[in-house]
Amino acid sequence: MTNSPKPDQQSPYTNNGGRPRSYDVPTWRKVAYYGGAVLQGVGLVMFFSVFFIGFSAFSGIGTSDTGQDIGRMFRSFPVSLVGFILIGIGQWIRRVGKEGLAGSGVVLSPQGEARDAEPWKRSEGAQDQMRLEEVPTLQTALGGSSKPAGAPAEVVRLRCRSCGYLETEDATFCSQCGQPI
Rank of each mutant, 00 (worst) to 15 (best):
Q129M: 11
R19A: 13
T137V: 04
W120E: 11
P148M: 02
C163W: 00
P78E: 07
G43D: 01
C174Y: 02
Q179L: 05
I53H: 04
D65H: 09
P20W: 05
A153L: 05
E169C: 03
S146V: 07
I53L: 14
S49K: 01
Y23D: 13
P148Q: 08
G88Q: 15
S22G: 04
Y165Q: 15
Y33T: 11
D128T: 08
L166Y: 10
S59E: 13
C163V: 00
F48C: 07
P78I: 09
Q10I: 01
G178S: 08
T2S: 12
G105A: 02
L142M: 13
A153I: 02
G18E: 03
S76R: 08
C160S: 00
G178A: 08
G178C: 05
R29T: 09
W28T: 06
T27S: 06
G43T: 00
A153C: 00
G62I: 08
Q139A: 09
S145Y: 00
L138K: 13
G41I: 01
E154L: 07
E133F: 09
F77L: 15
T140M: 11
L138S: 07
D65F: 10
P26W: 03
G88L: 14
V42L: 14
T137Y: 05
S76M: 15
L138W: 11
V25W: 01
C160A: 01
G35I: 02
K6E: 14
T66W: 07
R122K: 09
D128G: 02
Q9A: 12
G103K: 04
G41S: 01
V96E: 09
K30N: 15
L86V: 01
K147V: 06
Q40C: 14
E124K: 13
G150W: 10
Q40Y: 06
S123F: 12
S146N: 11
S104L: 09
S123N: 07
Q139E: 12
L132E: 15
S22A: 05
L132C: 01
V82S: 04
R21T: 05
R29V: 07
E124I: 09
Y33M: 08
F55H: 10
F48I: 14
D128K: 13
A102W: 06
K30G: 13
A32Q: 09
T2L: 06
V42M: 06
Q9W: 08
D8P: 01
S59L: 13
M1D: 12
V79R: 03
Y165D: 10
R21I: 01
P12C: 03
S104F: 06
G17C: 00
P119C: 12
G97Q: 01
L108F: 05
G88H: 13
A117S: 12
R21M: 09
S22H: 14
Y13H: 13
G41H: 00
S76L: 10
I61T: 03
P119R: 07
